[in-house]
């Protein structure tokens, strides 16, 4: 298990926390005072626990063992998530494929992997801790959907992707997993738009962040400390 002080966010060198609440100068000069409000807010949500789980969905022993360990049944419907579950940890389970899921926790990935491994002992299943493979970029705001649409081929219309749904796709040619956390009228969307968590591979994180930052300039960008 990695010591927490050794963990290093792939976006740490960008100093995002220091730039939090900054509004890009572009929109301040370009638009009227009424429009000066940022259309998009972005921030990094690093250090999440990610556990990849593979196993036979529909197998009673597998389903019940996982449900017991997580406190929530695995999502079977494509592109959906489940959670937070009965246990107190606010985990979320993403459907990735017909026999593949992610367990996303705000806490300790290796501990979650151990918990699943113990629960699934002797079964035909695979549990892999992939916490260090990705970071999460949180995007919200009135123009968040427009921003993602610039680089993502998914249909982001609310009838296709709404709060609680997830999808793996590309954003600006980088492989991402997208999780919509809030609908347009959701409480957490203070900027009045939808909210998304974008999980991106560490090696693509800086590229994608800079791409998003550039793409968000026309809407006005506010950087948040998550």
């Amino acid at each position: 298990m990695g010591d927490s002080f050794l963990r290093h966010s792939p976006l740490a060198h960008l100093g995002l926390a220091a730039r939090a609440t900054e509004v890009s100068e572009f929109e301040a000069t370009k638009f009227e005072a009424d429009d000066a409000e940022a259309g998009v807010a972005m921030g990094e949500r690093p250090y999440r626990g990610l556990v990849n789980l593979r196993g036979p969905a529909g197998d009673k022993a597998f389903d019940s063992a996982v449900e017991k360990a997580l406190g929530v049944a695995l999502p079977i419907e494509p592109n959906t998530t489940a959670g937070p579950g009965k246990n107190k940890d606010s985990l979320r389970v993403f459907w990735l494929g017909p026999d593949e899921w992610w367990v996303v926790t705000p806490g300790d990935g290796p501990a979650m992997a151990d918990r699943l491994r113990t629960a699934l002992a002797g079964q035909k299943a695979a549990v892999t801790d992939v916490s260090e493979s990705r970071t999460c970029i949180h995007i919200r705001g009135a123009r968040a959907r427009d921003l993602l649409s610039k680089g993502c081929p998914l249909d982001l219309h609310p009838r296709m992707l709404s709060a609680g749904r997830c999808a793996q796709s590309l954003c600006a040619k980088a492989m991402v997993a997208l999780h919509q956390t809030e609908d347009d009228s959701g409480d957490g969307a203070k900027e009045g738009g939808p909210a998304y968590d974008v999980y991106v591979l560490n090696s693509f994180a800086e590229y994608l962040w800079l791409w998003l930052e550039d793409a968000a300039r026309e809407y006005g960008l506010r950087i948040t400390a998550e």
Binding site: P78, N79, P153, A167, S169, K173
Partner: peptide, 11 residues
Amino acid sequence: PYCGERDETEF
């Protein structure tokens, strides 16, 4: 057949 209609670039 699993995810529904998606753009060709994903395949």
